[in-house]
Amino acid sequence: MRELKILAIVIFFTAVTYWGVEPYAHSQMHPHVAPADFRFKDMEPLHVNGNVDNGKALVEANCLACHGIESVGYAAPMSSEDAAGAYGVVPPDLSHAGVIYAKNYLAGFLKDPVSATKLSHKFNDAKPYAMPSFAFLSDQEIADVVAYLQNIVATKPSDKEVFEEACGRCHSMKYDAWNAKTPIASMKNYLGAEAPDLSMMIRSKKAEYLNTFINEPLKMVEGIAMPRVGLSEASQSQVIAYIEKVGDRKKAERESLGLKLIGFMAIFTLIAYLWKVSIWKRAA
């Protein structure tokens, strides 16, 4: 009885200390923010249905000067190095853009890229953003472009493909042998910061943080150069799954081995307890 009382006291003070330095301290250091918004409510949704054929014509006329769409046979017009030199950053291939990015975001991005990406602190009239605004298109035309981009996606991209298209232009993934398409020097010049390697991001930031952060970086880190990329909820979870696959490759092994180790020690403890009882019966 006395031992249990002592144990309760030890556990109580340990738990209070733990609570103070972990959950409580972290809640103070990282104040609560609104959850991720995958509907991108700040941008006016389109109220018209797009026409795929019109969209195709519009894309061919307006997008292909800079972007490739490899899945339908349009190669990128320039090599990555040349594109990075010309625009500051390598423009994305649009093969899966229709599913990778949220529909509402795509429309808003076409109309006003700087507002959509929330990069007005980095780009303005003096330093224009690489992607021009297509605000001169009507809502119908924008809906047509979006419809076309959605239509050409034949197969769901893999986790890694989503990562490469959505993140891999700026970020490297050293532990999976992926180098950012845009050279580091161009990146620095373009955004004023190096884009970090994402190999260990899952351990340094954790999935929960990444989910809010990727959805809207500026909400989490003041003045950060990373744009809001506008991933749909599904493709963002694919990106996080890929980051986890690379950065925490042994997670499954860890979680299954954990049960065995705990089981082993529990049996050890039980046997030790029985042995102790039998010995102390004689002694005390």
């Binding site: 860890r254 954990g258 030790a272 010995i279």
Partner: peptide
């Protein structure tokens, strides 16, 4: 063996918790 028999039990109890921490 008397003192250590109790210690083995305490060590076992603690190491069970330890492996929970290690893996989860």
């Amino acid at each position: 063996p008397v003192f250590l028999s109790k210690d083995f039990f305490v060590v076992g109890f603690f190491m069970t918790f330890f492996f929970f921490l290690v893996c989860y």
